[in-house]
Amino acid sequence: MHYLVGTTSVHTTAAVCDYLDDRATSDDSVTVVAVAPADDATARRDAQEALNVAPVRLARLGEVRTELRDGDDPVQTLLETATAVDADELLITPHSGLPDESTPVGSVGSTARRLLAAASLPVVVVPVPDV
Results as ranks from 00 to 15, higher is better:
residue 5 V to A: 06
residue 131 V to A: 11
residue 122 P to R: 03
residue 4 L to R: 12
residue 89 E to S: 05
residue 54 A to L: 02
residue 59 A to R: 12
residue 102 S to T: 15
residue 86 D to W: 00
residue 72 D to P: 04
residue 101 E to W: 01
residue 99 P to A: 04
residue 92 I to C: 02
residue 10 V to K: 11
residue 94 P to H: 13
residue 32 V to S: 12
residue 37 P to E: 14
residue 87 A to M: 03
residue 73 D to C: 06
residue 52 N to W: 00
residue 9 S to V: 02
residue 118 A to S: 14
residue 31 T to N: 08
residue 44 R to K: 13
residue 48 Q to D: 15
residue 126 V to Y: 04
residue 102 S to P: 00
residue 12 T to F: 00
residue 88 D to G: 15
residue 7 T to D: 09
residue 119 A to S: 15
residue 24 A to H: 08
residue 26 S to F: 02
residue 19 Y to D: 13
residue 59 A to G: 09
residue 122 P to C: 03
residue 35 V to Q: 09
residue 33 V to D: 09
residue 110 S to F: 01
residue 3 Y to K: 13
residue 61 L to P: 08
residue 78 L to Y: 05
residue 13 T to R: 02
residue 21 D to N: 14
residue 44 R to D: 09
residue 10 V to S: 04
residue 27 D to S: 14
residue 70 D to T: 10
residue 9 S to K: 05
residue 101 E to G: 14
residue 75 V to R: 15
residue 87 A to N: 09
residue 57 R to D: 12
residue 67 E to L: 13
residue 71 G to R: 06
residue 38 A to I: 00
residue 29 S to K: 15
residue 13 T to Q: 02
residue 46 D to H: 07
residue 35 V to I: 10
residue 121 L to K: 09
residue 68 L to E: 10
residue 108 V to H: 08
residue 109 G to Q: 11
residue 73 D to S: 14
residue 27 D to H: 11
residue 103 T to E: 10
residue 49 E to C: 02
residue 99 P to M: 04
residue 99 P to N: 05
residue 31 T to P: 04
residue 7 T to S: 10
residue 93 T to Q: 09
residue 129 P to K: 00
residue 67 E to C: 06
residue 62 G to S: 10
residue 44 R to C: 04
residue 121 L to R: 14
residue 24 A to L: 09
residue 113 R to Y: 01
residue 124 V to Q: 13
residue 50 A to S: 13
residue 81 T to K: 12
residue 19 Y to T: 05
residue 19 Y to C: 05
residue 45 R to N: 03
residue 50 A to F: 01
residue 90 L to Y: 05
residue 85 V to S: 08
residue 29 S to Y: 01
residue 82 A to P: 02
residue 48 Q to S: 15
residue 35 V to E: 13
residue 84 A to N: 13
residue 12 T to Y: 00
residue 34 A to D: 08
residue 44 R to P: 07
residue 87 A to Y: 03
residue 34 A to P: 10
residue 94 P to I: 08
